[in-house]
């Protein structure tokens, strides 16, 4: 069965459930943070998929979510559906999600192979650090797409004041307002992913690395996972 591992039942279930989680994260009402700031969970779910599933399964989960959305299920942000989202000005962000899933998944697998995920304390910081890669990955595709579809320049050039038309650019409209929220979501996703890898070791990479690393720490893995 080794050569079918990529499509074994567990992988299929993980892919499908995470695609469902990404879809559900746009459907449930947003969480209100302290101070009344609403927090939508879509970016969180995408980053979490990358960090938990690894490159191929995360790509499959995000692609599956996008395909269902394009096929007409209203599971994109704000209940939008269909191909109009892809062809619209924000369609680049969706493609960026796929890129982010691959980048994060590959990096998280590398962390798992290095045995970092099995060490408490280090794991969360490393996963947050990897998760930060999702911001450039998403914006790298999304911002030029937004600029192209709305005729804005990508970067503000020669900006002198708030009433200066040169100040309006894809970066000021499409990145800066969302940056703080995205950072919060990445940190949360990193923390949650660290918990998941502690509770379910062996989701990524080989179980041998997990066991070896936890034996080094002379710490009961089960106790660590439930602590």
């Amino acid at each position: 069965m080794a050569q079918h591992r990529g499509l074994a039942g567990q992988s299929i279930a993980l892919i499908a459930v995470f695609a469902g989680l990404i879809a559900a994260s746009t459907l449930v009402p947003e969480i209100t943070l302290v101070g009344g700031v609403p927090l939508t969970l879509q970016t969180f779910a995408i980053v979490l998929s990358g960090l938990v599933l690894g490159a191929w399964r995360a790509l499959a989960a995000v692609t599956l979510y996008l395909i269902l959305g394009f096929a007409g299920l209203p599971i994109f942000a704000n209940g939008a559906a269909g191909l109009a989202v892809l062809t619209g000005p924000t369609g680049g962000y969706l493609i960026g999600f796929m890129l982010a899933a691959v980048v994060l998944g590959a990096s998280a697998s590398a962390l798992a192979r290095a045995g970092i995920l099995a060490r408490r304390g280090v794991a969360a910081a490393a996963l947050i650090g990897v998760g930060l890669l999702s911001l450039p990955a998403v914006y790298m595709v999304g911002v030029p797409w937004l600029a192209w579809r709305t005729g804005m320049t990508i970067m503000p050039v020669g900006c002198s004041g708030l009433t200066d038309p040169d100040c309006v650019s894809a970066v000021t409209v499409g990145v800066i307002p969302f940056l703080v929220g995205d950072l919060i979501k990445v940190v949360l996703a990193g923390l949650v992913a660290a918990t998941i890898h502690r509770a379910y070791p062996g989701l990524l990479g080989s179980a041998r690395a997990v066991v070896a690393a936890s034996c080094d720490g002379a710490e009961d893995k089960a106790a660590a996972a439930t602590a």
């Binding site: 299929i12 279930a13 892919i15 459930v17 695609a19 469902g20 559900a24 599971i75």
Partner: peptide, 12 residues
């Protein structure tokens, strides 16, 4: 995968 995803949306 598609039918499992459809099933897991309400579950999630």
């Amino acid at each position: 995968m598609v039918s499992l995803t459809l099933r897991s949306i309400p579950e999630a």
